[in-house]
Simulated assay, not measured.
Amino acid sequence: MTGNSSPVLLLHGFWFGSWCWSEVAGHVAGTGRAVLAVDMAGHGLRARWPACLSRRPFDPAALPVERSPVADVGVEQAGDLLVSQIRRLGGGRPVTVVAHSMGGPALTWAAQRAPELVAHAVYLAAFMPASGVPANDYSVLPENAETLVAPSLQGDPNVIGALRLDLASADPDYRRMLRRAFFDDIGEAEAEAAIGLMTPDSSTALGATGIELTRDAWGSVPRTYVTCARDRALCPPCQHRFIAEADAAYPENPTGVVALDSSHSPFLSMPSRVAEIIADLP
């Protein structure tokens, strides 16, 4: 075993669940390290689906307007849950935490509140907002203009309190857009299976609050950012902006950067490589 030998906690992003890390976790476990993939607040086993999706006959007019049952899940709830998950895995020892996409703000919250518990913070194509800046603000920046997530959303997020995907849509163009947004470098069958495991709603509240960061907390935790060059969910220019802002704020603790030639979900397209990155952390 090389690099950091701390336990590894794997946190997914919006619409995903702990299931997406199964291949990576297997590779990491093979190195002899303790590893745990967890569900973020409002996702996986903690997800709640809008009632209109199970009501029959299905009313398509309800999909873009029904208030989300996870609308109240904010970054504080997600971050506090993550801290408890870190404590459980590490038993008080520091843990390496790998966060994907909108799992990034939860990791940032945890590292700011309990920096002694985070041995290394790894942001995998993840939101890593600057101090006090809500993660949602980055979604609408020019650096993220080529995202395919925005045109995939159903309804007004301000009305339903969530970013909602129509995962059951039979529209071939819409399904193709979902695959391009999240799974552009895996086969169609595997991508469709992954879409079948996703949950439709992710709370806008989770990215609505800026987290005030300090030099002796989040700013002191070793961090690595893994960029994904073919990402059409969180676009590469936005990923590089996160890195630049963090390094400008904390130049004494620069961000390690690893580049992947992948789309938004390298835990599915190149799980062994993701596991290698984790194993090689300093």
Rank of each mutant, 00 (worst) to 15 (best):
G3C: 13
G3W: 02
P7V: 15
V8K: 01
L10Y: 06
L10T: 02
W15G: 07
C20F: 03
W21G: 00
A25W: 10
G26H: 08
G26M: 11
H27R: 01
V28A: 07
V28P: 00
V35M: 12
M40C: 13
G42Y: 03
G42W: 03
C52L: 10
L53W: 09
R56M: 11
F58W: 12
A62H: 02
L63G: 12
L63W: 13
V65I: 11
S68L: 09
P69I: 09
P69E: 11
V70S: 12
V75N: 02
A78W: 06
V83A: 04
Q85L: 10
G91L: 06
R93A: 15
V97E: 02
V98Q: 02
T108R: 03
Q112M: 00
R113L: 06
R113C: 06
L117G: 05
L117F: 05
H120V: 04
V122Y: 00
L124Y: 00
A126R: 00
M128Y: 09
S131A: 14
G132Q: 07
V133T: 12
P134C: 11
A135T: 06
D137G: 05
S139L: 15
L141N: 06
P142N: 09
A145H: 07
L148K: 10
Q154Y: 04
Q154M: 13
L165V: 05
A170K: 12
P172D: 07
R176E: 14
T199W: 13
A217T: 11
W218Y: 13
G219Q: 04
G219A: 09
S220C: 05
V221S: 04
V226F: 00
T227H: 00
P236N: 07
I243A: 08
E245K: 07
P254D: 11
A259K: 07
S262R: 03
P266G: 06
P266L: 06
L268T: 03
L268E: 06
P271D: 08
S272T: 09
R273T: 09
A279Q: 14
A279T: 14
